[in-house]
Nucleic acid binder design. Sequence first.
RNA 1: GGGAGCGUAGCCCAACGGCAGAGGCAGAGGACUUAAAAUCCUUCCAGUGCGGGUUCGAGUCCCGCCGCUCCUACCA
Length: 849
Amino acid sequence: MSEEREDHRYDHRAVDAKWQAYWEEHDSFATPTDRTKPKYYVLDMFPYPSGAGLHVGHPKGYVATDIVARARRMMGFNVLRVMGWDSFGLPAERQAVKEGKHPRAITERNVKTFKDQLRQLGLSYDWSRELATSDKRYYRWTQWIFLQLMDAGLAYRSSLPVNWCPAQGTVLANEEVKDGVYVETGDPVEKRELEQWMLRITDYAEPLLAGLESVDWPEGIKEQQRNWIGRSEGAEIRFAVEGHDAQVEVFTTRPDTLFGCTYVVLAPEHPLVDAITADGQREAVAAYREQASKLSDRDRTTQAADAPKTGADTGAKAINPLNGEAVPIWVADYVLASYGTGAVFACPAHDERDYAFAKTFSLPIKEVVSGGDIAQAAYTGDGPHVNSDFMDGLDIAAAKKAVIARLERDGAGKGTVNYRLRDWLFSRQRYWGEPFPLVINDDGSVTPLPESALPVELPELDEYRPTEDGSPPLARAADWVQTTNPVTGAPARRETNTMPQWAGSCWYYLRFISPTDDTQAWDPEEEKYWMPVDLYVGGAEHATLHLLYARFWHQVLYDRGLVSTPEPFQRLFNQGMIHAISYQDERGKYYHPDEVEERDGTFYVKGTNTQLATKHEKMSKSKSNVANPDDLCASHGADALRLYELFMGPLEDGATWETSGVAGTRRFLERTWRLVIDDRTGALSAKLGDASDGDADLERTLHEAIKRVTEGVDSLKLNTAISQMMIFVNEASKRDKVPRAWVESFVLILSPFAPHICEELWQRLGHEGGLAAASWPSYDEAKLKVAEVEIVVQVKGKIVSRIMIPAEASEAEALAAAKADAAVAERIAGKTIRKEVFVPGRLVNIVAT
RNA sequence: GGGAGCGUAGCCCAACGGCAGAGGCAGAGGACUUAAAAUCCUUCCAGUGCGGGUUCGAGUCCCGCCGCUCCUACCA
């Protein structure tokens, strides 16, 4: 008897497996080919397939988009829902070196792990459109886009210093270098000049700013992009150098303080330094530049404005173009070579950094804007100008105008706009990336390859480290490097750098439109149909890099008439990060939750007296606080996991993972199951009745749930949608009879969240063709209303009574009913009514004195 | 230093400016059971980080603090 009963309970293993197989067999999520219906392109930021696999934090966004995709299909949209792999990148290359395998083999292994994990979650991807950026059928077109960029004059070569680590024989990213050493090993890092490819993203600074106005993105992300682009208006001013032909050009946003200039500063790398340095200062300046060059960019820029200032006097003098005054020229690393002109004029009275520098080196400080106390600190606020000749008495805005006009008249400078955004360093000294589609001729000139020569495939190597002389790994493929110019037939060599990982992710959303087309990157007709991406979901950590780079490429493609929309991602949504509790002993060792026990509110290593500190941290293997989706699919089922991912809280918020919460959504699914199935017999529940078995309260709960879920698909407020569905199931479970049609509607709205169990229930309810054939239920506003409502009656804002009135009652009726209440009447007797407030369905407030 | 966000019950979280509680977790009690699990029922628990202000009315809007998270950082 009991065994038989077991057989009819909700068995997630059987249900999950059955329907995942069904979907695959029936191609349930194939992208529709008719073009008559409205389209919806919902996209996840595709992952880098790391060796660690997925933890429960990763699928949060994927589950959210899956709900949107499944619901939109039922609502009659053609949905494009796809997944791929950002599969070029350094970790695979490192792992390849470690294991002595090809990075491709490592990548394929990791992709398989990821894909298996995603499949278990029942995500409705059209897997026939799967792509990988490291696939030559894909990177052929990445190379093609690079040719477009070259053709548009947006790609150029430039010699730049990079971080070179001799001990590791490799180049390092800025993030990997601190205090002049490789953070992982402590090996020293030096700067090495290498020929690099750059992309002129700065040419697109204005369109990138302007485009933000037209997209539906979180304000915070837009603001980050604006800050990153960093538009600032100011002036370029030329200072003559005393005794030299040379001129120093500076950029400033405060040309109005030019009379307060007491010195000029060049960045240590400024090209004029050698030419102008006085003989007596050569040694000191050389020593300073040497010292500065040893610091990584990061060290030079992570310090706050009040950091100790260093510098050296060149002994040269610059002439202030306004008053002819000669001021000393210094070299200091607080001026960055890569911003503006790499030189500034210093006005210590009104700039904190200049102030600190002037104090350090006892340079004069001259006030030109009144309102502060420059004996104490720099004054950066507004005020009437002083000691400034024609600007005296003007405020900052007026003074700026006046001084720019004067400089322009005198030919000593001009008003300009500057950007913080730098050109994009677009080459890496790595193997596992896209080769450049070009050859370098013997004279150093570059010839782009014709389209017919694409793809330029990565050659096979058996060693992925850089060469001994520091050339990138591709230099090892001598036969590959040595080639001929396709136009002239003359000997030429290939570029041994590869593209950075961002390249492939810059346009993958376009390739998903026609991923198997080997004749073009995408089909223009299909592109017109599907673009732009209607909803793009991913982490906020990509706010400035990926999302800016992709917009840049897209705008270039748009300007060349290759895509139909100026912006790629119409709506962006950032899912919050999932954190989890970690347990650490005094020495910092992490313990897995299974090794931990709680006694009297304190945590200990099981069976010992070793006390543990708890912390909420990012999920990470190294912190032993990772929850694995595979385990949860096995123990609670994919649907319970999917529900919990979203039930935890608002999608955009961070949340703390608690596996015990999955038990709650699992119980909800079990209650749902019992609503439909008699778990003693496996037959349909005897509860299911006809329309006459329903009551208005339950019907209202159902319609409320349909409404919340329908709206949640748009707003992505899915946690409250789930809770409304829980209310319906709790209520329905209490009834002896529930109209079958209501239960069916409920199964449909739950199905995007919990597709496996809902397919099963839908089938058992006698429907053919699966949920794919079903359409979305609608709600009826009229059904959401109740006949009578209890409203609160306040007198002067204090609750004195509660009365029942018809829901449709007018203000006059409600007030009359309120005043008829004894407690109210008593309180307003003999007083003057100053104000009466009526909030329909909520309250009445009578202000009487 | 700058920017963004968050702070409601033991915990996760709800509340068009209108009765602070929808849902879940954990806890307690009970029903069912030989017992346990499962299930069902009942139940405890905060006045919304702090201080002002606007308002008939503030968790919600405004100002100032405190705490936490994320991003960014000598950008002239």
